[in-house]
Design a protein around this nucleic acid. Structure first.
Length: 440
RNA sequence: GUGGCCAUAGCUCAAUCGGCGGAGCACCUGGUUGUGGCCCAGGAGGCUGUGGGUUCAAGCCCCACUGGCCACCCCA
């Protein structure tokens, strides 16, 4: 093969399109339900924005960015996440004078230079939600509820949140010191990977999967025990709201997230059965980020959801997507004179809003009907030279095979009448109601 | 960036010890002068991922590259 899609990228083929339409359609719908408006920041930004926003020392900045110099010498990076770009847009467009919080969502591609794996790609797509300008923990709850509602609508059952608080610049240093102190005592029992973490990013030790570290983790100090009053109160109120809504969650003191900007609330939602990349949604609060990027001190919270991972796990759970609408009629001409009339009829049907296919080439009727069958149309209009002469076409109902003679001049109305009841219904619907998947 | 497994038709996979590359599905045609689905017959489709090496002979053995899967790192 001369050319292949670059490593970690893939073609999203027509066969997968029902899932993409289904999932992104629900994303738009749920965002609207909660009052979030769509924003599309550019796919690439100045490299410095991500370095500053995501943070030097994070894996994303240190080794995963697609960075290059453009012809004018500008340092450019394909976005490795949405948040930094959306916050830049918030500042640049003066959104701090809008009614707060400003509630935004985005859908689009994300780029990270990583070794691909099941559920991990160099180009993937995210649904990203941000609520900027409000510190109330009810906003945390709302943002989490957007993710919850979406996944529930898509057909997931038995979901639960992983929740933690990573504190803030006031209380985190003390906790971090406590953690380092604890692990230092057992340093000889840690392997090389974890020892490196101890100096670079001690919080990450908490979600270590190294065998040697496991016995130490349960007794490690919990961040929740070292929160300042403000952070403790924030977490307590968020938990209260979650309980009001009876939304299942687990406090996971080992949940720490890799981006520098998180403060207070961090959360994830996991899906089973898609391998090591189980986190289908992850996010948290970033109260210092906008100031860091040169804007006024502004709190914010958001999450990213991996669309490929959502689709993978939907398939894993046996949840089908509704079929996409396709033409319900095929026109099958026989003979040169008839073909001319068929071209006219096909165009007129489409103009009238009836999806129609024209059988191309000088093929036998048998062959044309085979194609019609594969295209899964409801009706085939047979328009031969005989029909052209008599002005009456044969309309074949593909389900039962009955044929009806219909005047050529009235066939559009005839078809429209027959199809009107089901015109927008998918030809091959594989799922009835989106809230009631098979097996639920 | 590290480690393990892998790469044969569009797809899923066979091919004995290194000895003339096959099947199913899908596609096309025919079985009916102008009638689909099921069935039957036939056809087309391959530089065995790429480039080297060993050998009388390589899909099979060796090396490199590219890509995939799995795990790590990290993340959605």
């Amino acid at each position: 093969m001369l050319y292949q899609a670059p490593r970690g990228t893939q073609d999203i083929l027509p066969a997968d399109r029902p899932y993409w339409r289904y999932v992104t359609g629900q994303m738009h719908a749920v965002a609207a339900l909660f009052g979030y408006q769509q924003i599309d920041p550019p796919i690439f930004e100045e490299t410095a924005l991500f370095v500053r926003g995501v943070g030097e020392g994070t894996d994303i900045v240190d080794k995963e960015m697609y960075s290059f110099q453009d012809k004018g010498g500008a340092e450019i990076t394909l976005r490795p996440e949405f948040t930094a770009g959306v916050m830049r847009a918030y500042i640049e467009n003066g959104m701090h004078v809008w009614p707060q919080p400003v509630k935004l969502y985005s859908i689009g591609p994300i780029f990270r230079y990583e070794r691909p794996q099941a559920g991990r790609f160099r180009q993937h797509h995210q649904f990203n939600v941000e609520a900027v300008g409000e510190l109330d923990p009810a906003v945390d709850l709302e943002v989490m509820t957007v993710a919850w509602t979406l996944l529930t609508r898509l057909g997931y059952r038995g979901l639960s949140f992983q929740l933690n608080s990573t504190g803030c610049p006031v209380c985190r240093p003390a906790y971090r010191a406590k953690l380092v102190e604890y692990f230092r005592a057992y340093e000889d029992r840690l392997n090389e990977v974890d020892r490196r973490r101890l100096t670079i990013n001690p919080l990450r030790l908490l979600d270590s999967k190294e065998e040697a570290a496991q016995p130490l983790l349960n007794d490690a100090p919990h961040s929740a025990d070292y929160l300042c009053d403000e952070c403790a109160d924030h977490l307590a109120r968020l938990r209260g709201y979650l309980e009001t809504l009876q939304m299942p969650y687990a406090i996971n003191f080992r949940l720490v997230r890799g981006l520098d900007y998180y403060t207070k609330t961090v959360f994830e939602i996991w899906a089973e059965g898609i391998g090591a990349q189980a986190a289908v949604c992850g996010g948290g609060r970033y109260d210092g980020l906008i100031e860091e990027l040169g804007g006024p001190p502004t709190p914010g919270i958001g999450f990213g959801m991996g669309i490929e991972r959502v689709i993978l796990s939907l398939k894993e759970q046996g949840i089908a997507a509704p079929a996409l609408p396709m033409p319900r009629v095929q026109i099958s001409p026989l003979g040169d004179a008839a073909r001319n009339a068929a071209v006219r009829l096909t165009y007129d049907l489409r103009t009238a809003g009836v999806g129609a296919l024209l059988a191309f080439g000088d093929r036998s009727l048998k062959s044309q009907l085979k194609s019609a069958n594969k295209a899964d149309v409801a009706y085939t209009v047979i328009l031969g030279d005989q029909e052209l002469a008599s002005g009456v076409v044969v309309v074949r109902d593909m389900a039962g095979g009955e044929q009806t003679n219909v005047p050529l001049s009235g066939v559009i109305d005839w078809l429209r009448g027959r199809l009107s009841r089901s015109r927008f219904a998918p030809a091959r619907s594989v799922i009835g109601r989106v809230t009631d998947p098979p097996g639920a």
